[in-house]
């Protein structure tokens, strides 16, 4: 056996979805479990990306006292922290939208958090370059 069985198991054999999962993911049918796990790993990859931004924001404020003037340090730190928060929330929303598409066999949504991450990182890099060149 190299492929999971596609036949529907008898009712009650697999733990049912939690009440929370039923509320936020109504309707549709359970997709291939490998897709559900892949979606979970993709969410985790996004969460680790946002945690890296959060860690960066904390590190800028905590460790660069002698490098950047205070307004720049605070601004950069808050920018990175806000970007990390937006990405954390966005990755959960994306997980939900992908899971919902999988359940109803619709095409997967485009990742809106991709351009958000790119734009945010570009702004943060531009600020650092400006400080290094002008400072």
């Amino acid at each position: 056996m190299t492929v999971p069985s596609t036949s529907t198991p008898p009712p009650g054999s697999v733990p049912r979805r939690s009440r929370f999962a039923e509320k936020i993911l109504p309707g549709g049918t359970e997709p291939d479990p490998r897709f559900t796990l892949a979606n979970e790993r993709t969410f985790l990859a996004w969460i680790r990306t946002s945690l890296a931004l959060l860690a960066g924001g904390i590190a800028v404020e905590a460790f660069t006292t002698d490098v950047f003037p205070e307004p720049v340090r605070r601004g950069l730190s808050v920018l990175l922290l806000l970007l990390g928060m937006l990405l954390s929330a966005g990755s959960a929303i994306r997980w939900l939208r992908v899971e919902s598409s999988l359940r109803s066999n619709r095409p997967l949504p485009l990742p809106l958090i991709g351009p958000l991450l790119a734009a945010g990182c570009a702004v943060a890099a531009a600020v650092v370059i400006a400080v290094v060149v002008l400072g």
Partner: peptide, 22 residues
């Protein structure tokens, strides 16, 4: 879940983790 061909999504874990990060 893979043996049964059906796996309930772990919504609680996803939202708790995202909430902790926010």
């Amino acid at each position: 879940g893979i043996r049964a061909g059906r796996l309930a999504p772990d919504a609680a874990a996803v939202f708790w983790t995202a909430g902790a990060c926010v």
